[in-house]
């Protein structure tokens, strides 16, 4: 791989929460990480090790306390919140651990949201692609129902395809299969692996499930705010 393929570079990133010195806790202790075009990465580690915190920083939702984050070579630390927001809309996709859909919107509208954010409105022209994406996870026939009418597992599958609406360069998925049974989890993974191969979209998938992690070509292990392992699954997962 050439250096043109480098999308994201983290170097020496620390993250602390709290203002006062006595209540201040450091959650990330100097993370160095490079993500390239087309990588399929699993991020594993015990609860509370800082996986979601790292994802928020990578996803431009939170800022590092110290350290540098470059996206396509550009340092983001001096960008304004508005610039970060439009960069998110352009190049990033998200699947969240807890919140999935907006219950007052239809399923199709939920999937259209990233496009609506970019274009300034929900528009009928965005719908065909949304319905097409829903078809990949077997939910095309649910497009016009309200999101709140769907089961938790269905909602999570909708959230997965929503992250792909704008054809982002990188997708950060925080336990995208957390609410799914084994079979649905594997179907969602089949879809993501296939998408990764076809579109060369980079995925970072946080998971507790070794079977999911094993399907990624690169696995990162995080313990207590340190990246302690980075390599192919057969080396990291043992």
């Amino acid at each position: 791989m050439s250096d043109d393929d480098v999308l994201v570079e983290l170097s020496g990133v620390h993250k602390s929460f709290g203002e006062a010195p006595e209540t201040r806790v450091e959650v990330l202790h100097g993370i160095d990480l490079t993500l390239r075009r087309g990588e399929l990465v699993a991020l594993v580690g015990p609860s509370g090790s800082g996986k979601s915190t790292l994802l928020n920083i990578l996803g431009l939702l939170d800022r590092a306390t110290t350290g540098i984050l470059r996206i396509r070579g550009r340092d983001v630390s001096d960008m304004s919140d508005a610039e970060l927001t439009s960069l998110r809309a352009e190049v990033l996709g998200f699947v969240f651990q807890f919140h999935h859909l907006l219950p007052g919107l239809t399923v199709a509208e939920n999937v259209m949201l990233p496009a609506a954010a970019r274009e300034g409105a929900l528009a009928p022209t965005q719908r065909p692609r949304a319905v097409d994406l829903l078809g990949h996870v077997g939910l095309a026939d649910q497009a016009d129902r309200y999101a709140r009418q769907l089961s938790g597992g269905m909602q999570q599958r909708v959230a997965v395809v929503r992250a792909l609406m704008n054809s982002p360069l990188v997708v950060y998925a925080d336990e995208p299969t957390g609410n799914l049974d084994t079979e649905s989890s594997m179907r969602v993974m089949d879809f993501l692996v296939d998408w990764n191969r076809r579109e060369r979209t980079t995925f970072v998938i946080v998971t507790h499930d070794p079977d999911i992690a094993r399907r990624c070509r690169r696995v990162l292990r995080m313990v207590d705010g340190h990246l302690v392992a980075d390599g192919p699954p057969e080396d990291v997962l043992r």
């Binding site: 998110r88 998200f94 609506a116």
Partner: peptide, 11 residues
Amino acid sequence: GILRAMGVRAR
């Protein structure tokens, strides 16, 4: 939070 993450502006 979801809307903001999707790139919806604060405005």
